[in-house]
Design a protein around this nucleic acid. Structure first.
Length: 911
RNA sequence: GCCCUGAUGGCGGAAUUGGUAGACGCGCUGGACUCAAAAUCCAGUGGCCUUUAAAGCCGUGCGGGUUCGAUUCCCGCUUGGGGCACCA
């Protein structure tokens, strides 16, 4: 009986679906384990061979955990709101929902072919009103909460209102609060709400017609689409993520994530501990205090000027009358620059003198105040004290504008560049003289606090998340404007469904697409017209999987108590500063409010590497239709052209297929080497435009899903990026065939009931031990090697015994579930192999431990030899002789231990 | 510029905690089967010297160091990949 993977795979996929083999329910009798994949955005291109890499790994782990007796939650769903479907809608008029449904169906079809053990009854889609009801609900919870720094957690906004009414809070007195109008009260509360509306400088992307979050912008271009992004002041919904910065940073410690990913989050959050200090300023005779932030108070004696951010509110007040024209010109210049230009010109300093002066609070020295774009309004206080001798940015600025540079560290040379390092001894610094920089920082902080000049302050780089998008295909905000006051919709009105509109473009007067909806109002008041960003729906989806059909809560208390949080999360690093921050924030908020029982959503996180494509090239001689083979191309002037990898085999081009490939190549001529056309190649991202996409469906057709699963894992370590090369797949395909042949003959299953021999058990038990260890370490490639070795050994022993095959099927089932299931059933089982238990090995046949034998040598030194338990006396004898040899070159050092494998010395351990 | 990561045969990659480097697979070479091919099976396969064998020497990006012993630990570089980047 041949190994007919096609019929085997479709048979068991259908059987699993019909029997709901992977349906999971809460079961307090069993320990839980939650394995989650980052759910995909269903794009129009479908899956390529790189996408399932992480899914296969998580599936192997889920199936393994299930064999180990865990109740495993392993769900899948779709991150279905997003820009591509909407862009497509704008171009074609096709409703994004239609495209999304189509893409989801295609994804599902592709996923199903690979044989995943998902509980599809728990599928979620972020664009489903039953799902986004809870996204909207969470937003309203945030709207109705504030962050109480005293308790360091989110609290209901009612508590803040109570404070305003009774004792007052911060700069609001009870009298002010009581006499405030509704609008004024709303404005005050907006300064505290976790979800709030406020004016801020945003990343505006004209090409997409919407604002973007910081993580959606890279190098001044939008991540989606690559359109230029500019800074613009706008009123937007925001989430007060910054309030959680400290906790987001601190609880990274307890997470089992890779160091690099934690480091990325640390950088993104960007804690810096410094000092806020007040400088008095004088402008046209008026005095005004200005607070600056610095991490280097110790350099206070090196301050030679101050700088304000151009966007700072202080600028108008600190512009002297006679400098007004120039300052305004500069502000205009800064404003019209795009983000990209600003990044490109970081080396050159720009700026203007404001005409105002600041007084150094420690030295009393008067220094000029400048305005420059190198100071950011959004960080610290938007104003700095400049110490050109010890800060490279201040240095560049001082050089450009001829400002004095005063070094305050002994012996440093600042003639060419600033001395930024935090070491050395201070000089020219009054009471700080003679201290090391580290001592001086602390001493200066103490001094500033004692004298009441300022205070210690921790700043974070992490900004609040901008939460509005001027788009259609996202969650509508459950907010309406009652007399201009943003008002939450009653919970009973959720979900607030997306309205139908006739076109998905922004309206003609620049309003978001929702402005086109016919009756976008609530009780006659206008509803919010922007929608939520992509990360809204993905921030709590892992909670929804725990209880996906609950219409009364995001997740019930019981389901949350049982599943708690994700034990293993697998996905790409690209979400390090987006989704993984927002999710943690969102979860902490829900935790503060008592809706969930764990404060971190993802305990262990593994980043699977990217699978890159391997592109092939042909070389066309310029101005001709002649193509020259790789080895000869340097003799001509050529252009490199991507060629479809499906018409190249082993870098050799199929000439006929190439002529058929594209009409303009129909009459192509070739210059060959050794009768063949050799293509160039490169490792690149897998993408349609590079003609290097490998579709998992094709692999399933030719080799089968089990082979695909094995090969993706065999390719190398999970976390490493690696190029896909179909060439090597034959090795694992052969392994499965060999395995199949070992236990079947022409008529079907061929096993005996004979007792297994010790060597056979040994091969099996070695595999059990190895597989267990490897899977726990996510080293799936080496498990597969161990399988190949075990099957090779069993094959050499000509072992066709049921007592061996049964555990082998169980061991193989996480990796190649279809073939395991088939053999399992051929052996007469009528349950699924996934319901079996991971085999325990019998102690008598475990891999033998080495034993230490004490040995006397020359009657003088004492040392030991490690040999296997079973070592024959002759082998021990041989070890001793070997020692005599080694003793020659060890010299007079005392030998402590000699490690020996049968007959051969490894090495000598000397005390 | 700063941070993180990696570098091992022709290729993908193994190597426990400092202890036989190159497991396993691909590719390649030779052989068996075949009229032939495919498939399958067997053997070989880091480099050098050598007719062959035995033996030896050199080998884990480069240069040092620690150690009886280093792919593994330490110091200094080179280089690939990723992240951050006027964050005071």
């Amino acid at each position: 009986m041949d190994y007919d993977f096609k019929s085997i795979e479709s048979k068991w996929q259908a059987w699993w679906a019909a029997n709901k083999t992977f349906k999971v329910v809460e079961d307090p009798a069993k320990p839980k384990y939650y394995v989650l994949d980052m759910f995909p955005y269903p794009s129009g291109a479908g899956l390529h061979v790189g996408h399932p890499l992480g899914y296969i790994a998580s599936d192997i782990f889920s199936r393994y955990k299930r064999l180990k007796g865990f109740n495993v939650l392993h769900p899948m769903g779709y991150d279905a709101f997003g820009l591509p479907a909407e862009q497509y809608a704008i171009q074609t008029g096709q409703h994004p929902e239609v495209t999304t449904d189509k893409n989801v169906a295609r994804y599902r079809e592709q996923l199903d072919r690979i044989g995943f053990s998902y509980d599809w009854d728990r599928e979620v889609r972020t664009c489903d009103p039953g799902f986004y009801k809870w996204t909207q609900w969470a937003f309203l919870q945030m709207f109705d909460s504030w962050y109480d720094p005293a308790q360091d957690k989110a609290r209901p906004i009612a508590e803040l209102i109570a404070k305003f009414e009774s004792t007052g809070y911060e700069d609001v007195t009870p009298e002010q609060w009581k006499s405030a109008s509704e609008k004024e009260k709303s404005d005050i509360l907006m300064r505290y709400r976790i979800a709030y509306q406020g004016e801020t400088s945003v990343n505006w992307c004209e090409g997409l017609g919407t604002v973007l979050a910081n993580d959606e912008v890279k190098d001044g271009l939008s991540v989606r689409g690559g359109f230029p992004v500019e800074q613009k002041k706008m009123t937007q919904w925001q989430l007060r993520v910054s309030a959680y910065a400290g906790r987001l940073l601190d609880s990274l410690e307890k997470l089992d994530w890779t160091d690099s990913l934690k480091e990325m989050q640390r950088n993104w959050i960007g804690r810096s501990e410094g000092t806020e200090m007040v400088f008095n300023t004088i402008c046209d005779g008026r005095e005004m205090p200005v607070t600056i932030f610095t991490t280097r108070v110790d350099t206070i004696y090196g301050v030679t000027f101050m700088v304000l951010a151009p966007e700072s509110d202080l600028v108008p007040q600190l512009t002297a009358a006679d400098r007004k024209a120039e300052v305004e010109e500069y502000l205009k210049y800064v404003k019209k620059k795009t983000e990209r230009e600003r990044i490109a010109e970081t080396k050159t300093a720009t700026g203007v003198f404001s005409g105002a002066y600041g007084i150094n609070p420690v030295t009393g020295q008067k220094v000029p105040i400048w305005i420059s774009e190198y100071v950011l309004a959004g960080y610290g206080t938007g104003a700095i004290m400049a110490v050109p001798a010890h800060d490279s940015r201040d240095y560049v600025f001082a050089k450009k504008f001829g400002l004095p540079i005063v070094p305050i560290i002994e012996g440093c040379d600042v003639s060419e560049e600033s001395f930024d390092a935090k070491d050395g001894i201070l000089c020219n610094s009054g009471f700080l003289n003679g201290m090391t920089v580290k001592q001086a920082i602390e001493a200066a902080k103490d001094y500033v606090e004692e004298k009441g000049l300022g205070r210690r302050k921790t700043n974070y780089r992490l900004r609040d998340a901008i939460f509005s998008r001027q788009r259609y295909w996202g969650e509508p905000f459950p907010i309406y404007y009652k007399d201009g006051i943003p008002t939450p919709l009653p919970l009973s009105e959720l979900p607030l469904r997306l309205p139908e509109i006739d076109s998905f473009k922004p309206s003609s007067d620049g309003e978001p697409p929702l402005a086109r909806a016919k009756d976008w109002t609530y009780q006659g008041y206008p509803l919010e017209k922007s929608t939520m960003p992509g990360f809204a729906g993905s921030s709590a989806y892992y909670l929804r999987y725990m209880d996906p059909h609950n219409d009364n809560a995001l997740v019930s208390r019981e389901a949350d108590d049982y599943w708690r949080n994700v034990d293993l999360y697998i996905g790409g690093t690209e979400h390090a500063t987006g989704h993984l921050i927002y999710s943690r924030f969102w979860n902490k908020f829900l935790y503060d409010m008592g809706y969930v029982c764990e404060d971190e959503p993802f305990r262990k996180l593994i980043n699977q590497g990217m699978i890159q494509g391997r592109s092939n090239f042909v070389y066309r001689i310029v101005g001709t239709n002649t193509f020259v083979s790789l080895g000869l191309k340097d003799q001509y002037e050529t252009t490199e052209i991507h060629v479809d990898i499906n018409i190249v085999r082993g870098d050799r081009l199929d000439l006929e297929a190439f002529r058929r490939w594209r009409p303009d190549f129909a009459d192509a001529e070739f210059i060959l080497e050794d009768g063949e056309y050799i293509c160039g190649w490169a490792v690149e991202k897998m993408s349609k435009s590079m003609y290097n996409v490998v579709n998992p469906d094709d692999i399933c057709d030719t080799y089968g899903a089990d082979t695909l699963r094995l090969y993706e894992m065999f390719l190398g370590p999970l976390e490493q990026s690696k190029p896909w090369d179909t060439k090597g797949i034959d090795g694992v395909a052969r392994f499965l065939k060999k395995f199949w042949r070992l236990y079947t003959d022409r008529d079907g299953l061929a096993v005996t009931d004979a007792e297994p021999a010790p060597e056979e058990l040994k091969a099996l038990h070695k595999l059990i031990a190895k597989e267990q260890e490897d899977i726990e370490n996510f080293s799936f490639n080496t498990t597969i090697s161990a399988f190949m070795i075990a099957v090779g050994e069993l094959s050499a022993l000509n072992c066709h015994k049921r007592a061996i095959l049964e555990p082998l099927c169980v061991l193989l089932s996480p990796f190649a579930p279809h073939i395991a299931e088939e053999l399992w059933h051929l052996m007469g089982h009528d349950d699924s192999v996934t319901d079996a238990r991971f085999p325990e090995y019998v102690a008598a046949y475990t891999v033998e431990d080495n034993v230490t034998y004490p040995v006397q040598f020359n009657g003088k030194m004492r040392f030991t030899v490690d040999l296997p338990k079973s070592a024959a006396p002759a082998e021990v004898e041989a070890a001793v002789r070997a020692l005599e040899q080694t003793a020659k070159w060890v010299g007079d050092k005392q030998i402590a231990k000699v490690v020996v494998v049968p007959g051969r010395i490894i090495n000598i351990v000397v005390k």
